[in-house]
C-alpha cells in the first residue's frame, strides 16, 4: 500500500516541476503569443546559478532556513535579469514578424545558452547535496520518502495559488488577461503593452528559474537538462492547451502520473506513451483540453 502513496507523491513531484515550467511558458504565450524555446534553458540557468552559489560560497554561509531560500532566489534573480535583457533586444523586434521567426530566434537563444553554461560552469555536472540530505526522510509505512521532495511539491501548489491570485484577483491580472484577449483593444484603453510584455516575460522566466533553483539540490545541474525539460513541458502544454493556466495544472498532473505509471509498468515505452498521448490530444482537440 505505502508504495502506491509513494507513486502518487512521485507523480505530484514531477507534476509540480512540470507545472512550474509550463506555467511560465503559458504566461509568455498567453500574453505575447510567442513560444519560447529557450524556456527550458532559463530553467537550467536557475539550476546552474543556484548550484554554483552553493558550491562556491558553501552551504555553511546560509544559516537555518536561509539555505533553502537564498540560493534559489539568487538563481531566480539572475534568470529575471537575463529575461529583462532578452525581451527588449531580441523579442521586441519580432512581435510584428511571422511566428516562424519568433520560434527561430528563441531557438537561437537556446543554442547560445547551452554553450554559455559550458563556457561558464564547465563540462562537469554541478552536484550539490546539502539542503537535500539535511531535511532527512519521512517514513511512509516501511518505506522512506525524502522530505525535500515535499518542499518541491508544496512549491508547485504555492506558485499555482499565487498565479491564480495574481491573474484573477489583482488589477494587474485583469490587464494581463485583457491584453491576451485583445491586444489592440487593450492598447486603445491605455495599457502600456510594451512594458506589460516585458513584465510578463520576466515573470514567466523567473518561475522557470525558481523550478530550476529548487530541483537542483535534488538532481544536478547538467548540460542538456533544459532541452529535456522543455520537451516534457511541451507535452504538458499540448495536452493542457496553449496559454491555459488550468491546462498547465491538469496537464502536469496527467503527465506526472503517466510517467510514474509508465516507468513502473511499461518501462520500455514510457517516453513513447507521452508523445502518443500528446499527438492524440492534438488530433482530437487541437486546442488542448483547456485551450480557448
Amino acid at each position: 500500500m505505502s508504495i502506491y502513496i509513494i507513486f502518487a507523491l512521485n507523480a505530484l513531484l514531477f507534476a509540480s516541476v512540470l507545472f512550474l515550467l509550463t506555467a511560465g511558458l503559458n504566461i509568455i504565450y498567453g500574453v505575447m503569443r510567442i513560444i519560447n524555446l529557450a524556456h527550458g534553458n532559463l530553467y537550467a540557468l536557475g539550476a546552474y546559478v543556484t548550484a554554483w552559489v552553493l558550491l562556491t560560497v558553501g552551504y555553511q554561509a546560509f544559516p537555518g532556513p536561509l539555505l533553502y531560500i537564498v540560493p534559489p532566489i539568487i538563481g531566480v534573480l539572475v534568470v529575471g535579469l537575463g529575461a529583462l535583457i532578452m525581451e527588449p533586444t531580441l523579442l521586441r523586434p519580432m512581435y510584428k514578424r511571422i511566428e516562424e521567426f519568433q520560434l527561430l530566434i528563441t531557438f537561437g537563444v537556446l543554442l547560445i545558452l547551452e554553450d554559455l553554461f559550458l563556457l561558464i560552469f564547465g563540462p562537469y555536472p554541478l552536484s550539490v547535496r546539502e539542503p537535500y540530505t539535511f531535511l532527512g526522510v519521512s517514513k511512509i509505512g516501511d518505506l522512506s520518502y525524502p522530505n525535500y521532495n515535499f518542499l518541491v511539491i508544496a512549491l508547485g501548489f504555492i506558485v499555482a495559488f499565487a498565479l491564480w491570485f495574481l491573474l484573477y484577483k489583482t488589477k494587474f491580472g485583469i490587464i494581463l488577461r485583457a491584453t491576451s484577449l485583445d491586444r489592440e483593444m487593450a492598447a486603445a484603453m491605455g495599457v502600456n503593452v510594451k512594458s506589460l510584455f516585458t513584465v510578463s516575460f520576466v515573470i514567466g522566466a523567473m518561475i522557470a528559474g525558481l523550478a530550476g533553483g529548487f530541483i537542483v539540490t535534488k538532481d544536478t545541474a547538467v548540460l542538456g537538462m533544459g532541452i529535456e525539460a522543455l520537451v516534457l513541458a511541451f507535452v504538458v502544454m499540448v495536452i493542457g492547451g496553449l496559454g491555459s493556466m488550468k491546462g498547465a495544472f491538469v496537464g502536469a498532473l496527467i503527465v506526472g502520473a503517466l510517467r510514474q505509471i509508465g516507468t513502473a509498468y511499461f518501462p520500455e515505452i514510457e517516453l513513447a506513451i507521452l508523445w502518443l498521448i500528446a499527438a492524440v490530444v492534438l488530433t482530437i482537440k487541437p486546442q488542448g483540453l483547456f485551450g480557448r
Binding site: 508504495i3 512521485n10 514531477f14 521532495n149 530541483i215 510517467r259 510514474q260 513502473a264 518501462p267
Partner: peptide
C-alpha cells in the same frame, strides 16, 4: 532502462525498484 544522460529525476525508477 532510463536514457543515458536523459533523466535527472530518478524517483519513479527508484520507487519501482523498491
Amino acid at each position: 532502462f532510463p536514457g543515458l544522460f536523459k533523466v535527472t529525476d530518478f524517483s519513479a525508477q527508484i520507487t519501482s525498484m523498491i
